[in-house]
Structures are given as structure tokens and as C-alpha cells.
Design a protein around this nucleic acid. Structure first.
Lengths: 533, 533
DNA sequence: ACGTTTCCCACCTATGTGCGAACT
DNA sequence: CGAGTTCGCACATAGGTGGGAAAC
């Protein structure tokens, strides 16, 4: 049952439209969540390379709490407004094309536009349920497996792009975010200030140019047109998949060497002149941790079993936008010293023109956690969150290729402690700091918030594919029928050759032929017409 | 590698919205084909039952030439206008949800709305290429297999619904068809005579009631409101998935017994009072064969390697609508005597109200051909079409679950001869004439037109998923890389557990951190902002 | 009164329709 | 000129946007 290891691979992942994400990130990204489900706007798309062309992979994505705080937008900036509310179990969204060959995945950017966010805790579509006014971090996972049923026993390679974090809201708080969305989301084109009527709010906000985020100091800033806000559509292409991409933080959970980080990989990171900016948050968590829930990194002080990493709130999102850039998650203990290398690259590319979405800069390096076989997800290595059994154990389910699946990883974090709770060894991967890998460890922390073993707990509920309500199979017991079936099928991966061919007399039905049936009037079917061919 | 045969199954398939299909069929269904690709209007949807809930199945569909004629719409009716033009290789459209469990497939009707028809011989989307003014027959296939790569070695159970045949056109010829489409296709709602302007043509056509097709005699009829044509929208629901369903002709290719038809199954068919009507075409092919290309059933007189079954042209489609109903394909040699049983049922239901889409009548029985393992498709058993090697050999390809795939079966027909050409034994299945199975054999004939071994020939071209242009992988050689990869993966269906967990240093990129990168103006990244949390 | 959420709306993208003029 | 095809069009469905009023 083990997938042949034949081909070697060394996945590299870059975020598509990194420029756009950066623009949002600098201001303080907000994502609207609605009962009916809302897409993320800068759409999460990743370009992949380094896969074994012939091997099959399953790509997944999930969104976990970024910290343990609840926020409020006050005086034009985001401020911590207390401890986070209980988190709903997070679902793992399996890319609908999974499983597919490495070649197929690498052929074009992998988009997750079907993943929707909602605040409806009773959602039956399988959307990702988030808490409004809370900060989240999307994560991307690559798993080498040819069957979704094997996910629980497979190694997960997790990639995190700090610039994709966001605060979930039911209504936009920061007008600059609204404007940026309107300027870049094709579906919001109707709200652009293109002469035509429309646009009620954000009138004056339009001019200053979107770069209000450049605002270096995170200090308190004022809202409105404080900095540069322009209604002029983003320089980049009109919509989503804009130019540049960025490499994610890569969490790779290796063998059993707990939390051990490969120095080799990480060595070549950080130390960028711009680093300090990003380090802001990172440092905060590791040192200054101001939030309501003092995030003592490494301390498993998780209340509701979910978020409880250091609270690296991005107060005035707009103002300190730059700082948060990509060091949102910074190495707490060891990482700091590790982030070096590649800085030249980054610095050189930094001050490119704003709004330009094209500068292909593979700035910072990803932090990747690779989990291995038996023990499922573990991830976070600094925080050991004793996640409540609630959502901690979620089984995995195979829906049916072709439809988006999702599993409740509960959120597997970096905290090794969490795993032990599940009776699974926690294997912390090292941080592959190939390049600009900054914040590696801290990043792990952020992820770890909702840490959980991720034993793949199946439930009918989970069967619902994103956006595609399931037809209700069996009940809602842990191992739905579907799961069983799939498992069985997977167990014996043999061709149906053995199937006893027999002329099934069943298909025949007693339905009246389409012939004269349903004739409106009375005209019966006279005599058959002779073909003239 | 063989899929466990554990659960037994006995698939039953019924056509959704059979009433609607019947209405079209009586008039003479026309399907528009365009360069950009066009959907079929009565959407092809099948309801399935009898599958092994736990087993995995792959569902496919293809559209093959129904005869060897070219048609023209003259004097308000379809007439044969010569021998058919060369057929383009036909692609096998794999339902995008494949593979999925029987339970999943049975949960709700399986639709193939993604399948598109085109007349663009250079189509790169993977659409089905048809010849305008030619008659075609859609086919549905059920294959028990948990991996698309195993299709070539799997048993195909093919179902044919005679009432779904149609003539491809670039512009509608019969106004009644146009009106029926407008009345039932939601997307054409703008052309309905609902007081509001619109609708230019078909003004007077509106009243007579759509049943002009009731016209019993296939003799020459006139167009216009000859019979009963009504503008009143079809009684059935507004759009597609209307009420009743019908069972298809089922082609089941069993072991090695060539062309042999299980009498048992077929015995209970035919002999319906209305039969004669439907027999029209059938007889024609087997006996009266009038068309330009005298279809001597059984004789492998295939010109371009495609269609060359008896030409069962449906001259004045409208007029002889009833006849053609469901005996379009009739048993040529032995089937005739076999079609019995169930007639009572059908007759009793016949003269139901016209236009009503609700009468759930499982009238005629399906003809099913079941192919078995090694030798791939064969199917047709009466016609041995020496399909040219051109499109005859199409390899199969696994694109990636989640996306529609298609293969070029070339069109596997009933002709056993065709297979030998491929070096594969042809195993004719028997006709399962469980109930009302009429026209079983002939049906096979119709299908057999484009008979071909269906060795699953892969080509880059085929990789293109329906509607989703492929990103071009390798070249266009028979066994594209993707295929190889997939095959390899399938060969070793083992979990990735063995994968050596290693901290990949690769993911790290030299990309400039999202931090200050791409800063629009010049403002460098000042100092990192201290977290205030 | 305030902070947040819900709801409906106009407007957008994207795509499926047949029409009819233009083209071949 | 006629048969058939192509093209842009107006109009449909389906669903993604933020606004703003109303509700909580």
C-alpha cells in the first residue's frame, strides 16, 4: 500500500500575485465572511515546481487562527479587543483536482477559489467557518499520495505565506482595504470610480495612491486618506492572478526529530535589512507580546483548544503595513539567529514601484514543515497546545475525486505537545530556510495555534464538498459509509478484470417506449415509415 | 492490482427527462454545434441504481454516428442527402466526478452538461467533434474501476437511449425544434412569446401545439404547423431535468462469447403493437436499407472507418416521430423475434397527454453491452467495421481527477471484426433484455457504426479537459508523459509512508520577503514596528 | 447609542441561448 | 441565388461584489 518512492521530489511553492497580497497585507487584509460563503479576494493561488512529474499528489489548504486575539477596528486601526473566541473545527480543503500527477500540478498555478469562508457555524456546505474580527492564516499543503484515503498516513509538506494572513470581518472596516478590493476584484468593478455613477464611500480615499501601507511606523495612524490612497486601479493587471509570486514559509515535518530545525536549510535566510520591519510581529510574539493573551511562545496556554500563539496583532494595519509584510511570524527562539542570507536579493527588489504586480521577486523563503507517515499532523514545535478533544480529532474522508473535499485537521500546529495528547509522536520538521526564510519558527507558532493531531476524522458533514452540498449518504457517524467504501476500494487496487461478465437482465425497465407516448392529441402511431436512406 | 470483486452489482440506468427527450425525438432532435462548443439541450442525465455502493465506478459518455448518411432538411423534413462524410475521432468523455463510489453515483442523477459539441475539427478543448447534418447517438458507459488508468482493462457496460439521437446542425432547420428548445431551455427564455417583445421567427408556429411530431406516417410531411404545434411551453417543468426517465438499451459485452446474444435476456422484448413504428428504421437497416450508403448490416463496409451501419435515417423527423421513438435501433437478425414482453405496459401508457414531462414510464428496456477485461471495447456484434487505424486506436489518459477527461474510443461498436484488427479478442456481450428490451441488437448496430477497438490511445490533445484547455505537457506522442506517470503511480499503489522525510531545503527561494518588497514609492522599510498586542 | 451582523440591491463576470445579418 | 456556416447581438442563468439600510 505504500506509494513507491521512485521519483525524488523537492517541491518549491510560490504565491501567485504576491504583489497584490503584499498590498493588502501592508494595509491589513480583511476578508468578508457571510452566511452564504464568501471567496477570499486575493485568490489563493500557488505555483509549484520540483514535484516528481510522475508521482501523484494531493494538494490541500486550510485556514487556521493566527493568534489568540479578538480584534476591533478602532480609530482607523486594528486593535486587540480581548482574547479570541472559541474556534470552530477547521476543515482541510482538498483541491478538487486531487489526486493528480506532479506534472499536472506544475503545469499551471493551483487555485483554491472554490474554498469559501463563512461565519455560519451551522454551515452544511463544507465551507471554512471563521470568527469575525479574528485573525487567520491560510496554509498550503502538498502530500504525495495517490489516494485521498492515504492522506492520514502520508507526509504533509506545509507552506505558509505570512502575507496572506487576514482578519475575518462581516463588513469591511478599513476603507483602504475596500478600495483595494474594488480596484482589483473584477466582480467589484461596478464600484470603481470610473466616471460612471456608483461608489458611494471612499470618494476622497481615492487619490493618495494605495500605498498608504508604506507607512513605516506601526504607530497609531489615522484612517481615511492619511497616507496614499488612490482610486486608480492597481497598476497590475485588472484582477487576481497578478504577476509576482513569493515563496512561503515551509514547514517540513521530518522523521522523528522533534522540533529540530535543519540549520542547513534555515541558515540561508533572514538577516535582510528589511527584515527588521517584518520582525516586528515576530519579535513581538517572542518578546514584547502585548496582547490580551500574552503569547508566551512555547507555553501551551491554549484555552479553547485553538489559537493561543503569541498575539501578534497588527494594530494599525495600514500604518505598519510594511513591517508586517513577511515577518509576521518570526522565529521565537532559534529562528532569529537563523534568518540570514538572501537578503541582498530582497533588498534589491524591495523598493520597486508600488502597485506594480509584476516584480517577480522570490523574496523570502518558505518555512516548510514535513510531517511523516504514522503520526499525522503535528507541525508547530514551539507551542504545545492542549487542544480540546472537540475539534482536535478530525478524521479524513475521501469524497470522490472531482469534487472538493475537506477534512477537519482541527488545525495541526507546530506544538509537539499537542500530538502526544493524541497518542501520536510529534515530529517537528525543520525549517527549510533555503532563501530569505525568515520567521521560520515563529511562523510555525502562528500555525500551531490550532494545533491538533489531525487524525482525520470523517463525518458526513465533512463530506459536503465546498460549495456543493452533499446528497446525504448515510448518517453522520465517524466513519461514513463512503469512507468505508473508499477504503475498501483502496485496499484492493486491482482492475475489475475479475468482474464476472454477465448479461444483466436488470437494466431493462418496463417503461413505455418513447414511441407514441405522450401524444398530445389522439393521433395514434399509424404504420412504421420505411427508411428512405 | 485487480479491484476486488467483493460487492455484486447490477446497474440499472434510466434517462432523466425522458418525456422531454421524447418530445424532441418525435420531431427529430437537432443539436446545434458551434466552433466554441455547444451543450446538448435536453441535457443528458442518467439516474443510476443497482451499483455496488462501496465499489468505485467511472462513468463515461460518448457520441457516435448513428448511421452512414448525410442529411438535409428539405420540404420541412429531414431527408438523406448522400453518404456520410468522414467522421472525426470520437472522444470518450469521462464524467469529471470519476471515479466515485456507487453510492455517490446513485445519490443523484449523473449529468454530462460539461460535454460540448463542436464542428471545429481543430478543437483543442476536448469537445466532441461532429459533422453538421449528420445523425448521432449518445451513449452512456459504466465501468467498475477505481482508477482511470484501469479503464482499458475494465468491463464497460454501455447504455443507449434511442430517443436521444439527434442530427447535428449549425443552425436549426426545423422550427418546431427551435420552439421546443426555446420553450424548455432556460437560457433561451428570452425568446419565448411571453408578451414581451422578442421571438422573431416561429410566430405562427406557436399555436398548433408541439405535437406535430405525432404525425404517424413517416411519409413526406410539410413543415410549419402541419400537425399540432403549440407555442405553449411544454407542460413539463420549465427547464431540463424534467420528470420521467427511461431505460436505455443495454449493451453488455460478456466474456469471450462473440456476438452471441443471450436469448434469455432478449427474449422478453419487442412485439409491441407500437413496435412496427419503431421498427421502421431498424428494418430499414437490416432489410430495406434505402440510404445512399446501403447499410448491409454485418458487412464491414466502413469507408472512413467510422459510421457505416444501416442508414436508419429519420426522414421527416417530425412526421414519423412516433415511429422513431425508441426503436430507432432495432434488432436486425435475431433481435426482431426477441423483442417481446412489456408491451402491455408501454401501450397502456402511450397516449398519455402530450407535452407532459411527468409520466414516469419506464417503457422500453435498455440494451446493454458489457465488454470484459483484456480486450477493450468491442461492442457492436452485427457490424464489423474495419475502422481505419486513424481514430480506431485511441489510448486512454488520466488527466487528473476533478477535471473532465476524455478518450478517443474511436467509437467502439458492436462489430467483433473491429477488435481483431487491434489484436484484441472481441467479446460480444449479450443483450440484456430484462424488460421491454426492444431493438437490442439493432441498437448495437447503430452504435457499431464507428466501431473500434478502443485501445485507449492517449495523446496530448486528449489531455485537454472538456472546456478546460490543457497547459500542454509534453508532445503529442501516443503515450504522453502524463500517461506514463499515472501508469507508474497506479502500478504501485502504495502509501507514501515510505517517503523519506527530509527537510527540503529547496522550498526556500531567494525571493525578497513580502516585507518592503515592491514598495511603490521609495519609502524603504523603516524600523520594525513593535507589536502592541 | 454603538458595534456588529444581516439582508437585499445594483452591478459586475462568465457563460448559455437563438436570432439574423453577413459570409462562404 | 441557395444551402450552409459564422459572427455579433440581445437576452437569459448563475453567481461573485460592496453598499447601505435594517436588524441584532
Amino acid at each position: 500500500m505504500e506509494p513507491e518512492e521512485e521519483g525524488e521530489d523537492d517541491p518549491k511553492v510560490t504565491l501567485e500575485a504576491k504583489d497584490l497580497w503584499d498590498q493588502f497585507h501592508k494595509i491589513g487584509t480583511e476578508m468578508v465572511i457571510t452566511k452564504s460563503g464568501r471567496r477570499m479576494f486575493p485568490p489563493f493561488k500557488a505555483r509549484i515546481s520540483g514535484l516528481d512529474k510522475k508521482a501523484k499528489y494531493i494538494l490541500l489548504m486550510d485556514i487556521v487562527a493566527a493568534d489568540d486575539c479578538r480584534y476591533k477596528f478602532h480609530n482607523s486601526r486594528w486593535m486587540v479587543a480581548g482574547k479570541a473566541d472559541p474556534e470552530m473545527p477547521k476543515r482541510m480543503y482538498i483541491h478538487p483536482d486531487s489526486p493528480a500527477t506532479g506534472e499536472q500540478w506544475m503545469a499551471k498555478p493551483v487555485a483554491f477559489h472554490k474554498l469559501k469562508l463563512t461565519n455560519n457555524i451551522s454551515d452544511k456546505h463544507g465551507f471554512t467557518i471563521l470568527n469575525s474580527m479574528h485573525k487567520y492564516q491560510p496554509r498550503f499543503h502538498i502530500v504525495r499520495a495517490n489516494d485521498i484515503l492515504k492522506l492520514p498516513y502520508s507526509t504533509f509538506r506545509t507552506y505558509v505565506f505570512p502575507e496572506t494572513d487576514f482578519i475575518a470581518v462581516t463588513a469591511y472596516q478599513n476603507d483602504k482595504i475596500t478600495q483595494l478590493k474594488i480596484d482589483n476584484n473584477p466582480f467589484a468593478k461596478g464600484f470603481r470610480d470610473t466616471g460612471n455613477g456608483r461608489r458611494e464611500k471612499r470618494q476622497q480615499l481615492t487619490l493618495p495612491s494605495l500605498r498608504m501601507y508604506e507607512d513605516p511606523c506601526k504607530g497609531d495612524r489615522d484612517v481615511g486618506d492619511s497616507d496614499a490612497s488612490s482610486n486608480e486601479p492597481t497598476p497590475g493587471r485588472d484582477a487576481s492572478p497578478l504577476g509576482p509570486v513569493s515563496s512561503p514559509l515551509r514547514f517540513s515535518r521530518l522523521g522523528r526529530d522533534e522540533k529540530g530545525c535543519n540549520d542547513s536549510d534555515r541558515e540561508e535566510l533572514d538577516e535582510h535589512e528589511d527584515e527588521h520591519e517584518e520582525e516586528r510581529c515576530a519579535r513581538a510574539s517572542s518578546t514584547s507580546s502585548p496582547g490580551p493573551r500574552p503569547p508566551s511562545s512555547l507555553s501551551p496556554t491554549c484555552d479553547d483548544g485553538v489559537k493561543d500563539r503569541p498575539c501578534l496583532e497588527k494594530e494599525d494595519a495600514k500604518a505598519d503595513s510594511r513591517k508586517r509584510s513577511d515577518s509576521v511570524f518570526r522565529n521565537v527562539d532559534k529562528d532569529k539567529s537563523e534568518n540570514r542570507h538572501r537578503k541582498e536579493t530582497e533588498s534589491s527588489k524591495k523598493d520597486t514601484d508600488s502597485g506594480n504586480h509584476s516584480g517577480a521577486k522570490d523574496v523570502f523563503s518558505p518555512l516548510m514543515v514535513q510531517t511523516e507517515s504514522p503520526s499525522h499532523f503535528s507541525v508547530g514545535h514551539l507551542q504545545s497546545l492542549a487542544l480540546s478533544g472537540l475539534h482536535s480529532q478530525q478524521f479524513f474522508n475521501q469524497l470522490s475525486a472531482g469534487q472538493p473535499l475537506f477534512i477537519h485537521p482541527g488545525q495541526f500546529a507546530m506544538g509537539p505537545g499537542a500530538f502526544s495528547a493524541m497518542g501520536m509522536g510529534s515530529l517537528l520538521a525543520s525549517v527549510s530556510g533555503a532563501s530569505g526564510l525568515e520567521n521560520s519558527v515563529l511562523s510555525a507558532q502562528g500555525m500551531g495555534s490550532t494545533a491538533n493531531p489531525f487524525p482525520f476524522h470523517l463525518s458526513q458533514h465533512m463530506l459536503a464538498s465546498q460549495g456543493i452540498p452533499m446528497p446525504t449518504f448515510g448518517g453522520l457517524f465517524p466513519y461514513p459509509y463512503t469512507y468505508m467504501a473508499a477504503a475498501a476500494a483502496a485496499a484492493s487496487a486491482s482492475p475489475p478484470a475479475a468482474q464476472p461478465a454477465r448479461s444483466p437482465g436488470t437494466p431493462s425497465r418496463a417503461a413505455p417506449g418513447p414511441a407514441c407516448g405522450t401524444a398530445r392529441t389522439s393521433s395514434p402511431c399509424p404504420s412504421p415509415k420505411a427508411p428512405t436512406c
